[in-house]
Design a protein around this nucleic acid. Sequence first.
DNA 1: GCCGCAAAGTTGGGGCTCCAAGGGTCGTCG
DNA 2: CGACGACCCTTGGAGCCCCAACTTTGCGGC
Lengths: 239, 239
Amino acid sequence: MATSDPVYLRVVEDIRRQINDGTLPPGAPIPSRAQLTRKYQVGETAARHALRVLVTEGLIIGRVGSGHYVRERPILMPLHRWRFPEHPTPFAADLQTQGRRVTWEWQIDSTEATPEIARRLRLPLSAKLTRTRYLYRGEGRPLQLAVSYEPVEFAAHLDEERRGVVARMSAHGVRITEIRETVHTRVPRPAEADALQLPAGTHVLHVERTHWAGERPMETSDIVLPGDRFRVTYSMPVG
Amino acid sequence: MATSDPVYLRVVEDIRRQINDGTLPPGAPIPSRAQLTRKYQVGETAARHALRVLVTEGLIIGRVGSGHYVRERPILMPLHRWRFPEHPTPFAADLQTQGRRVTWEWQIDSTEATPEIARRLRLPLSAKLTRTRYLYRGEGRPLQLAVSYEPVEFAAHLDEERRGVVARMSAHGVRITEIRETVHTRVPRPAEADALQLPAGTHVLHVERTHWAGERPMETSDIVLPGDRFRVTYSMPVG
DNA sequence: GCCGCAAAGTTGGGGCTCCAAGGGTCGTCG
DNA sequence: CGACGACCCTTGGAGCCCCAACTTTGCGGC
């Protein structure tokens, strides 16, 4: 606002305002570097810097050779997490109820517990675990990543089964009583940005889910979602 | 990795690796621009760009006149959201149970429902609402922002009361039956970045909380938390 | 032994330029 | 009429430079 703050911010704020109030709708082209220098009477460096800031904020995207464009605001996908068993666990099921064609691939392998996973499953370090890696796609585009860990003894026939954790554990005589999820946000790791085709500047929602049988953690998973495309809803009954 | 990708990325990846594997512990100084150009045999632009990328990733902070330093990994504060009434609603209560000195300030005023708030409270546009703005601090430093909206008729004596929404509504004969929270992540608005003293590159967790009496929404609030300092935990009973 | 000041180093804003890679457009040629 | 190539524009990487504002350090004087 003040005339004293950096000129590149003047450009950033003006464009941001135009995007927010709809003057520049999604898909609209942003003036090029050369045009910005003329329009705002700033140097090339300032124009370039302003565009970079808007890119890292996730408001615009740059296409080399073409220009910068207001990013298509991806529809926020609500993921509803209700009390069980009214609604089943997997995020994929939530997505399908919204009429989206969701497909997924998975790989199963064996691994040893890392310090973090050992802590979450209350197992000794380097305990033998079965790891399942999921990649969910919605209409072909990558939607979310998930990695699930559980003790080997419960994971038999995992590759053939389509049942969720609750049902599968129940077949082993283990009754899941509670699911806990912890959500926070962070910068995507390079592999995640790659797998999820994340544009620069987006963060991910990281959901840590653990299935409990009483006081024993039975399965834990890390679910990674593009932060700008998902909202997760939790419902808690009162009284 | 490949020798073909930009040189600034070589610098970024090398420093990022050193931070992740502990070679550069929190607080450790990063080589200055001049040192980086010598060490990695790159130009000033590349060194500068590498540092900027690491800053926007939230891994390091720059102090003018001094240098860049590995950011102190702020302790992730868990906020547990259980079934009610075993645990009360406000985030502040969760924080206090962790033995942190939490203080808060609030301002109450009247406002009209914006389209978004009207939708959430299922009220006509420009319905009269009481708005309460909270700023929570932990050990003096700003922790979280919250804005609560409720119809004026329930908000009498709001400024004198210390009770939560559930108890206050109950005094008006309204029984809150459910709390729904939606969490997503986004770039902080300038006012939020300012109020929460957010370093560049951090995102916020935005929790939308609504208190329901049956099928009627009674109160809704927007809670904004620094994304890198908070994790929110939800517990869902099964069966 | 301590204070204060000056010099050196550092970030962050800003400017200018060159170049490779790629997108768009238009006109020419088969 | 359709395919292809030339030319212009745009992004993004990279280099170098100047300067204001600020921190740190070290030295000289009291």
